[in-house]
Amino acid sequence: MMTTMLGNVKSFWKDEEGLGTLEMILIIAVLIAVVLLFKDKIQEVVEALIKTAGEKSQEVFE
């Protein structure tokens, strides 16, 4: 009985079927953490890019 349980635990430990999903979840979690840490800086950069694009487009149409 104990050897069967030990065998099951070892096979579960070596099972790599869900490993790809776990890696994707960890990558997404890290990306979310980075975005939350640098949210203000990212927002400033995006707003500056939008403003620059708007000014350049106005120059084209003038």
Rank of each mutant, 00 (worst) to 15 (best):
G18L: 09
T21H: 07
Q43S: 15
M2S: 13
I27P: 01
M2I: 08
L36N: 11
E23D: 12
L6Q: 12
G20P: 03
E59I: 02
I28Q: 06
L31R: 06
S11G: 00
F38N: 07
V30A: 15
K41A: 12
A33Y: 05
I28G: 04
T21M: 10
T4D: 12
E16M: 08
V60R: 00
K41F: 05
I25C: 01
A53D: 07
V30R: 10
V45H: 05
E55Y: 03
K51Q: 10
V35E: 06
A33V: 07
M1R: 08
E23P: 01
T3W: 13
A29L: 07
D40H: 02
D15A: 00
S57D: 07
A48E: 03
F38C: 11
D40F: 00
L22W: 09
G18Y: 08
L22F: 08
F12E: 12
A29W: 00
T4K: 12
Q58D: 11
I50L: 09
M5H: 05
I28V: 14
K39I: 05
E59N: 07
E17I: 09
I25R: 03
F61D: 12
L31H: 03
E44L: 08
K10V: 13
G18Q: 14
K56D: 07
I42T: 04
A33P: 00
K39G: 03
L36V: 06
M1H: 13
M5G: 08
E62P: 01
E55D: 06
L31K: 01
V9A: 14
T3G: 10
E23T: 10
E55A: 08
F38D: 10
E47K: 10
E55I: 04
V60Q: 02
L22N: 13
D40P: 00
M24Y: 04
I28H: 01
Q43F: 10
I50H: 04
S11V: 04
L22Q: 13
L19R: 15
L37P: 00
T3H: 14
K14C: 06
V45A: 12
L37K: 14
I32W: 04
V34A: 12
M1I: 07
L19Y: 11
I42H: 00
Q58A: 13
A29Y: 02
N8Q: 14
D40M: 00
T21Y: 09
V35T: 06
Q43N: 14
I50M: 06
M1P: 08
T52P: 00
L37N: 09
G18P: 01
T4G: 10
F61P: 06
